[in-house]
Amino acid sequence: MRFDLTVLLPHLDALLAGVLLTAEVCALGIVGAFALGTGLGLAATTHGWPGRLARFYVDVFRNVPFVVQVFFLYYGLPEVGVYIDAFWTGVMALTLVGGAYASDVVRSGILAIEPGVVEAARVSGLSRLSIFRRIVLPIALRTALQPLGSVFVNLVLSSSILSMITLDEVTGAARGVAAETYRPFEVYAFLLVAYAGLTYAVSLGVGALHRRLNRHLVAGGRA
């Protein structure tokens, strides 16, 4: 069989709808993962039970396959009376797993801050909240930006698994198109390159943001 991408042309609208759904679920998931990850990452640096709890959470969500987590949330929770539709299950799953990965990054960002900086702030009489909000968090996030970017890129790749709980995001849409056209090679090859292009664009953007946020750290003020 010849390799012929034009067979995809009549189905572009279905694929585009899938891309939009992927973008939606990923955008919400990334926001959730960022919020959860920041909270967990902060908690994980403490010594008491919040720290232990946060580290246990991260351990569980990093060591159980994402598919199993998704199946548990989508098929398991209704058994105990919690009904959530596929879209919000997807957002929740991405938030929970992304939060676990992001928290590790945020935690090491916080631990990398020089103690002298925080001591100086404390001596200057800043409250604990303002030290955290104005000193610790900005510095930690600046260090964490690039690894956070790759966490989010991985989240976008993981979102393809949501097609297994009937969510017709771009991978789900592509399965439909492959079944309709009988041209699975063209469909999935196109999808592969599309995902790679998307993640490449995201990492380029993160790199540019990283250079911009850190430009004062480079000699001469230019990156």
């Binding site: 297994m164 592509a174 041209r183 592969l192 390159v193």
Partner: peptide
């Protein structure tokens, strides 16, 4: 390898399992 690292494994599986047999019969 950069392409493989930056795309979902699920799609790679579909490409190999459904796509390649369709191409090579």
């Amino acid at each position: 390898l950069e392409l493989l690292r930056n795309s979902p494994v699920l799609v790679q599986l579909f490409l190999v399992f459904f796509g390649i047999p369709a191409l090579i019969h």
